[in-house]
Every structure is written in C-alpha cells, then in structure tokens.
Simulated assay, not measured.
Amino acid sequence: MLEFKRAWRLCLLMITAVLLTGCNSTQDFSLSSFGNSVAGPDLPASVEPYPDDQVLTVAKVHFTERNYGSAARYYERAVEVMPNNPEAWLGLAASYDRVRRFDLADRAYTEASRFMADRPEYYNNVGYSYLLRGDVAKARSNFLRAQELDPANLTVNNNLELLRDNANRIGSKQG
C-alpha cells in the first residue's frame, strides 16, 4: 500500500510537470459558454484578483499545493484572458478532474485538444482523467496513445506501469 501511495504521489508530481508545458495557437474562445461560475464544495465562488499576466502562474501554484478548487478558478480566469493557451486549458481540465467535475473537465479537454491533440501530455492527462473516474480501459487507451507519440515519456510510462501493477494486484486478489 505504501508503494502504491508513493507511485500516486510521483504520478501527481509528474502530471503537474506536464502541465507546465505549452504551445501557441490563434483561435478564439469565450468562457461564458463554459459556465465558469459553477461553485461547489471544492470550487470557491471567487478568487483574489491578479493581473492578467500572473493568473496562470497563480493557478499553477494552487494546483501544485493541491488547492484544486482555487486552481480551477484561476485557470478559468487564465482561459478567459488567454483563450489560445493550451497550458491553461489543460490545467483547467486537470483541476476540474481533481474536484470530480468531470463534465467540465471533458469540455476543457475538448478545448485543449484544439491546440494539442497531437501531444503526449494531452493524452496522458485525458488518460489520468479516465483513471480518476475508474474507467481503466479508456485510461489505458489514452496512455498508450501518449506512449505512441513519445515512447520515452517517463510520466506516460509510469502511468502505464501503475495500470499494470493495479491489474496484477486485482488479478492476484481474485485468484
């Protein structure tokens, strides 16, 4: 059990590192159709104002500190001011995953896919989203797609190993 917890912590750290990558595009999007005022037990109704050029950094800090509700709010603001920033969309989706708002995460992943559907970090994060939901088959499929795109990606390979370990444990408990 201790090894499993360590693996999950390592996985979370690696996902955070993946979120720190990005690329650019020129498409436009308005968050108003996204329903950005969806408060809940883990999503604060509002956050402190920061200058537009700092909001993405603040979002990353909250995510790293496991303040996922606050991270989601700051990422929401980030995609409002930088609608073409894939890193902001991927961070928003990951934050929604962590507060179990998978409906909103799916929408953010759809937006992220416009900018980075050919990137391993996109498929890794989508795979992790499905893993959080308990859909191991879809998680594995996305992790394998990420591995196709970057066979040496440590995060992806660790996530696949995590799935294998879990499958082996489940198999040994049933046998």
Rank of each mutant, 00 (worst) to 15 (best):
residue 6 R to M: 15
residue 82 M to S: 12
residue 51 P to W: 08
residue 77 R to Y: 05
residue 50 Y to M: 11
residue 63 F to A: 09
residue 130 Y to S: 04
residue 151 P to H: 00
residue 69 G to N: 02
residue 135 D to P: 03
residue 23 C to R: 14
residue 121 E to P: 01
residue 35 G to N: 13
residue 154 L to E: 01
residue 48 E to H: 07
residue 50 Y to H: 15
residue 115 F to L: 01
residue 153 N to L: 08
residue 22 G to H: 01
residue 11 C to H: 13
residue 66 R to P: 00
residue 44 P to K: 12
residue 160 L to N: 04
residue 58 V to Q: 12
residue 47 V to Y: 06
residue 7 A to Q: 10
residue 140 R to Y: 06
residue 26 T to D: 14
residue 34 F to T: 08
residue 61 V to F: 10
residue 33 S to N: 11
residue 72 A to T: 05
residue 69 G to R: 03
residue 36 N to D: 12
residue 44 P to R: 08
residue 134 G to K: 00
residue 20 L to Q: 14
residue 83 P to G: 01
residue 157 N to W: 00
residue 78 A to K: 10
residue 90 L to N: 06
residue 13 L to T: 10
residue 77 R to V: 05
residue 29 F to G: 12
residue 109 Y to C: 00
residue 148 E to D: 10
residue 58 V to D: 02
residue 124 N to F: 15
residue 87 E to A: 15
residue 74 Y to S: 07
residue 26 T to H: 10
residue 103 D to C: 01
residue 105 A to N: 00
residue 174 Q to R: 15
residue 68 Y to V: 04
residue 68 Y to I: 03
residue 171 G to P: 02
residue 131 L to Y: 15
residue 31 L to I: 09
residue 63 F to V: 05
residue 72 A to C: 03
residue 36 N to I: 07
residue 20 L to V: 08
residue 145 R to L: 14
residue 107 R to M: 10
residue 67 N to C: 05
residue 14 M to N: 07
residue 160 L to Y: 04
residue 87 E to H: 09
residue 142 N to H: 08
residue 130 Y to H: 13
residue 108 A to E: 09
residue 84 N to I: 00
residue 135 D to M: 04
